[in-house]
Design a binder for these strands. Structure first.
Lengths: 118, 118
DNA sequence: AATAGTGTACTAAGCGTCTAGTACAGTACT
DNA sequence: AGTACTGTACTAGACGCTTAGTACACTATT
């Protein structure tokens, strides 16, 4: 897995898991990779994965059974959706509009700009 | 000045200066605050401001005269615009669309959502 | 009971960032 | 020449993140 420098690795891993929940690739009570497995597969230190899982557990997105593993929480989808949506509306969207304004990009241009990327 | 934890402080200061350039509040050959002045006014360590200025100088947005101070570069506006625009198109916009897709937000909803914020 | 897989806890080290403090070198002004 | 600004350089320490390694406790399976 590739990481960028703008955010702590353990949070980037958490984001990826949240994505999989939102895409319904991970569903309620489904077991996720063990700390060691995950660490190997994404080439990261086990301690970093421990942080990720502790963080996701705090958010109520996963739960654990000692000696067994970590599992997706019952209401993980709703929790994740709420969490990400609130962040999007309160943080990302305002920053996005501010940047557009600074760069002189109009709302109507957005569709064209997307095409340029692809 | 208030800072968030997602980005190094010296880069947040750099961003603010870039903003002022784009808003034309800072113009070519205009002198900016000295390292010590800036440090006091935004309540940050002088060394952090040194980092900011070194970074902006690398980007060609400011230049220095030893013993005199730092100044806005001749083509600072264009350089800043290019720099920020490229980052916006290559990094922010794709992430923005991906998040929208994950959250099930349609392009047409964006205008309404903005109103909710204000 | 033994084994192999879980999560957990701990120490140690490296790195980037930020703070604190001190000292030095260049420039402008009087 | 003296003074008061500039930028510059350096050491030292604190903090968060990450890595490395070891050891222990719990659970399921045989």
């Amino acid at each position: 897995m590739e990481f960028h420098a703008q955010q702590a690795i353990y949070l980037q891993i958490a984001d990826r898991i949240c994505e999989q929940v939102l895409r319904k690739e991970l569903n309620s009570d489904e077991r996720i990779s063990s700390v060691r497995e995950m660490a190997v597969s994404i080439e990261v230190n086990p301690n970093t994965v421990v942080r990720t899982y502790a963080y996701l557990e705090e958010q109520g997105i996963i739960y654990k059974q000692r000696g067994v593993g970590y599992f997706i929480a019952k209401d993980a989808y709703q929790r994740t959706l709420n969490l990400k949506k609130e962040y999007f509306l309160k943080r990302e969207l305002p920053v996005f509009y501010k940047t557009m304004s600074l760069l002189g990009i109009e709302f109507e241009q957005l569709k064209e700009l997307t095409d340029k990327i692809n």
